[in-house]
């Protein structure tokens, strides 16, 4: 039964599963090309000195991209469920509703987290061949909060998509937008580290948000 649920989610999202890694790869390649260009123009020594003195983020385009990935995946996964209230078909399946929803959510989270892990590796492994470990570590600490935004954005978007009433969707959108800014504040490398445990805790708690929307959907709230 879980295989069937995952199959359905895959069919819905297969375009996005191709688009997102392609987009991330393109942005990563572009970032590296830009990086190498700056190194060629300024010289590696001067470039590294600037990075150290000015705490430069080497991958600025990845600040908002993970949030976008989370929102896109959740939209593609759950908007079809809400269109014509198709979610009724999913909730009618002969499997405990909570298990169905958990499976769907874990599918999305797994996709998003896998994408992020691969991206982190793709960015930092080449970086480690070129720069000292401290630089790699600094870039990792810069990226981490932005990347944690992806599962947060996914869960918040899911919550909002499934919510049946605009009366709750609109404040939800406002609150979610504010919440996602917590993940993308401009900060020096490492400045976010005290906040990262809170961000992770928020993602864990946000996992329960969609269940409220499902409960409200089931009540037929309009």
């Amino acid at each position: 039964m879980y295989k069937a649920i995952l199959y359905k989610e895959f069919i819905k999202t297969r375009a996005v599963i191709i688009i997102l890694p392609t987009l991330f790869a393109a942005v990563a390649v572009f970032s590296f090309l830009q990086l190498f260009e700056e190194i060629r123009l300024a010289g590696k020594v001067s470039f590294l000195e600037t990075v150290i003195q000015k705490d430069t983020a080497m991958f600025p385009y990845f600040k908002h991209l993970p949030t976008f990935a989370g929102v896109l995946l959740a939209s593609v996964q759950y908007l079809p469920e809400i269109q014509y209230k198709r979610l009724k078909l999913t909730l009618h399946l002969p499997i405990k509703e909570s298990k169905t929803i958990i499976t769907m959510l874990l599918y999305g989270i797994t996709i998003v987290v896998t994408l992020l892990l691969i991206t982190i590796a793709a960015l930092l492994i080449p970086l480690a061949k070129t720069f000292p470990a401290e630089i790699v570590n600094a870039q990792f600490m810069t990226l981490i909060p932005h990347f944690i935004a992806a599962p947060a954005a996914y869960l918040l978007t899911t919550w909002i998509c499934i919510e049946p009433t605009w009366k709750f969707k609109i404040p939800g959108i406002i609150a979610a937008t504010y919440a996602l800014t917590f993940f993308t504040m401009t900060a020096k490398p490492g400045a976010y580290m005290p906040f990262v445990p809170y961000l992770i805790a928020f993602v864990v708690i946000a996992f329960c948000f969609p269940f409220l929307s499902v409960a409200r959907f089931k009540e037929g709230i309009q």
Binding site: E49, I52, D55, P132, E134, I135, N137, A138, M141, K188, P189, G190, A191, M193
Partner: peptide
Amino acid sequence: HTPNIGLYI
């Protein structure tokens, strides 16, 4: 109270 990359020149 600022993070330090840990590299110096």
